[in-house]
Write a protein that binds this DNA or RNA. Structure first.
Lengths: 114, 114
DNA sequence: CAAACTGTATGATGAGCATCGAACACTCGG
DNA sequence: CCGAGTGTTCGATGCTCATCATACAGTTTG
């Protein structure tokens, strides 16, 4: 059985950064990348904790993908949790909005990318 | 006499980009740099057409500074005009705000940088 | 336990970009 | 006309970062 979330989790826990402690430059740099923009947008269109890292449709390998999630965590944009073999994600909408008002909305409203 | 603005201007006119045609990624990349953030902020605290390129207190040489202004123009953030020997600047507040609502305000409100 | 799956860690590689120094073009004041 | 001031262009340099291939660790299923 593995419906349980709070399982053992012998894995190294992902390192998160509180959005309140994220410098502006860090946030802007994190969002100034087409792959990460797409990740955030796809995540925004899904329910919390429903998307594993590998479930995103981005044109990069596993290693690069893992790197992008590290950047998004450091920018206070994404929270991760281990669930069995997978690592599921959640967009930190409200917390990030409180730190950088309007930024996330701008990203999600603008349909263009570059 | 040199109070006139619309002088001859035998110089190569600066190339501008309409904010409406600026891709999101271009705007975010332009603002994801400490020097350019400072330029925009200083410009926001000055009246239009009162600041020449060399009047900004940034820790880079003339060549790099010129490059940064090129990036800011391409992002639809700054408009330039030749005035005698100097090139004076103006922050495109309203136009940029119309294209990316809240982004400029966020940059100017957040006192932190990185 | 073995095999398949998910994600991380480690180099290595390549591209982009921020920077500088120097040369050049233009403007203004004497 | 000459010199000082302003800004751009060019070439070179160095660094950051996005990416990949590979190896590794934990999890789940057979």
């Amino acid at each position: 059985m593995t419906d349980q979330v709070g399982g053992a989790g012998h894995r190294a826990a992902p390192v998160h950064t509180d959005p309140d402690k994220v410098p502006l430059l860090t946030a802007l740099s994190a969002l100034a990348d087409p792959v990460r923009i797409q990740l955030v947008r796809e995540l925004a269109g899904s329910d919390d904790w429903t998307r594993s890292c590998g479930s995103f449709d981005v044109p990069v390998g596993k290693a690069a993908l893992s790197h992008h999630f590290t950047v998004l965590r450091a920018a206070g944009l994404v929270e991760q949790r281990d669930q069995g073999a997978k690592r599921v994600n959640r967009l930190r909408r409200e917390e990030f909005e409180a730190r950088f008002p309007g930024l996330l909305d701008l990203l999600l409203r603008t349909d263009d990318v570059g």
